[in-house]
């Protein structure tokens, strides 16, 4: 109980300090672009009404969810295929390295050309950026399946779909999750950027609108919302990861205890 309390104090200390510093430093600010934090906080409830949450935050979140899910499915599926077969890997690897090196925001104008400016474009942009870390990490994870485990599976007739489900994907899951984690932050960035280009709603769109209308405190509240969204998603991600990779953390901890 006391330790939990202490951990909470540690977790909250730095954010509290930073907010205080911001609050105090900006208290007397008359600079239009750096309004006092007090003004921003006061503007917050007026800007982020239930209607706005439904009209802007929800569409953004749905686009992110759609693009991210698409990237996860495609990344894991392709990564498993590429990681499992040496020949496929030899053919795909140079192309993958090239595609990965292209900064995803560059894709926005390109994808806009054929996907238009609707939700399809945004979901495609998010998926196109998120898929690489998932794909490449899956390839590495699938390649690294322990040969003894692979032989065990073979000797007990665990082949095909059962092998994939019980051995390959489970064994690669720590790496897949590392990829998914990277993809999550890329996804948020691309969600905002794609909405800045061409949109009629969404978080990125709203923030740009505020900025163009010189509603600077409102713009800052939008940035806070983005930060909070990112934080919330990372908490959810960690919760899922702890459940799915509980065995992995336990295994590592036991390996550390007895080297």
């Amino acid at each position: 109980m006391r330790r939990a309390l202490l951990r909470l104090v540690f977790a909250v200390a730095l954010p509290a300090l930073l907010v205080t510093v911001w609050w105090v430093a900006s208290a007397g600010s008359t600079d239009v672009y750096w309004p006092p934090l007090r003004t921003i906080v006061e503007a917050f409830p007026d800007v982020w009404t239930a209607e706005r949450l439904r009209g802007d935050v929800l569409p953004s979140a749905l686009r992110l969810a759609g693009g991210y899910a698409l990237a996860a499915v495609v990344g894991v599926a392709l990564g498993t295929a590429i990681g499992s077969y040496r020949r496929v890997r030899a053919v795909c690897e140079p192309v993958l390295e090239f595609l990965r090196a292209v900064p995803p925001p560059v894709l926005v104008p390109v994808i806009m050309l054929f996907a238009g400016i609707g939700d399809t474009m945004k979901v495609t942009v998010i998926a196109a950026g998120c898929v690489w870390p998932v794909l490449l990490n899956t390839v590495e994870g699938v390649r690294a399946v322990d040969p003894v485990m692979a032989e065990t599976a073979r000797s007990y007739g665990i082949t095909g779909a059962a092998r994939l489900r019980n051995l390959v994907l489970r064994s690669a899951s720590p790496q897949i999750f590392a990829g998914l984690r990277q993809a999550l932050s890329i996804g948020i960035i691309l969600m905002v950027i794609s909405e800045m280009f061409a949109a009629s709603n969404g978080l990125g769109f709203t923030i740009v609108q505020f900025q163009r209308g010189f509603a600077i405190p409102d713009m800052w509240t939008g940035i806070l919302v983005l930060g909070l969204l990112g934080f919330l998603l990372s908490v959810v991600f960690q919760w899922v990861e702890r459940r799915v990779l509980g065995w992995y953390h336990g295994l590592r901890a036991s390996a550390r205890r007895s080297p």
Binding site: E151, L167, S171, Y248
Partner: peptide, 11 residues
């Protein structure tokens, strides 16, 4: 197998 640690699935 000899390598019991790598023959059982840790997950």
């Amino acid at each position: 197998f000899q390598e019991y640690g790598r023959s059982l699935f840790p997950w």
